[in-house]
Design a binder for these strands. Structure first.
Lengths: 179, 179
DNA sequence: TAGATATGTCAATATGGCTGACATAAACGT
DNA sequence: ACGTTTATGTCAGCCATATTGACATATCTA
């Protein structure tokens, strides 16, 4: 592999040569993100497994909690899965009393999604263990750490999707400005 | 949900009240990490799909590339999957000439894993698109960004697993100090 | 030589994705 | 008012990737 660094991208162009080499794949970061996400997800996985739920259920709980009254189509857009895949987990969640669907008042074709009290409790529990992980990771950095993390994670998202995600978050925060 | 913030964790204890409320779930960060990881993984997914490979193949390629000569048992430990699950993807990769297995010289029961030139090329290609994403996300921060990201991601990993991951990365970097 | 270890493989099962086809109800446009 | 589009649901079947338990083989180790 003589050309190992040919198409390399400089990670820190402003840094000359002191620490580590700037070119070449950032294997360490790739690996760390892999493990970080594995454990981040693992927090919730344990709790969910006890209820017979999987990650698909978690994602639905999360987004419905965060955007109460969202349409099924919105959820499909966000999760980028098919109606059929969503249908299965949504049915589980409705049958077991975590989610309710209410017909839209303006457009009665819509089945607007809401969590029940039971669903909200679970969603919050799941979010809190994950929040605790973020809190621990950001603890030692200064006051700007949270904003920095937010900016960094945003920059990791596809430019095409970024705006949409930012709008999504802004909307949720407007709806619930307390947190 | 009267007790909504009871078990909340402060994200920025040093920050009084200026920006956002410190208590309560960090829904924004949770969501951003979800999308960031989705897109991060998506970079490689596209490339892999063209070859008929999935994420399982990618993980094997990555870790074998990073730790040449690793044992099957080591890989099972890292990936936390079963022998049977690994077996399938490993067979694919061997049959299609991305991975070779060499009997250990000390212990001939071992089937030490190596990438072929073809495998190395693919592994590097995959790593480079992901590196580019990191580079873009860290670009605007200063020279310390890479180390900060590394520290942050490390802190996101389970304390129990952290040491092992750090050892893993350190070992790989010792073996390939150039990058 | 008797275990223990490293690996491989078989059969069966579960989850969570997918596609394509089709159904229903409601809204919308002309 | 009728036809089309939209929002949703559902059926049947397929695929990838994970699981467990059992068992086989080769090799090392005491």
């Amino acid at each position: 592999m003589a050309d190992i660094n040919v198409s390399a991208v400089s990670l820190r162009p402003s840094e000359p040569s002191n620490e580590r080499q700037a070119g070449g794949p950032a294997y360490d970061l790739i690996e760390l993100l892999f493990f970080a996400y594995r454990d981040f997800i693992g927090d919730a996985d344990e709790r969910l497994a006890g209820l017979g739920f999987g990650r698909a259920h978690h994602r639905v709980l999360h987004f419905v909690n965060r955007h109460p009254g969202m349409r099924v189509a919105d959820l499909l857009d966000i999760l980028k899965i098919t109606k059929q895949s969503l249908g299965r987990v949504l049915r589980d969640l409705v049958e077991q009393g975590y989610v309710v669907q209410k017909a839209g008042q303006a457009d009665r074709r819509q089945r607007l999604l809401h969590l029940t009290a039971k669903g909200e409790t679970l969603a919050r529990d799941l979010a809190l263990v994950q929040t605790r992980r973020f809190a621990r990771a950001l603890h030692e950095y200064g006051p700007g750490a949270r904003e920095a993390a937010r900016k960094f994670l945003t920059a990791m998202i596809d430019p095409a999707a970024r705006e949409e995600v930012e709008r999504l978050i802004a909307r949720a925060e407007r709806a619930d400005p307390k947190r």
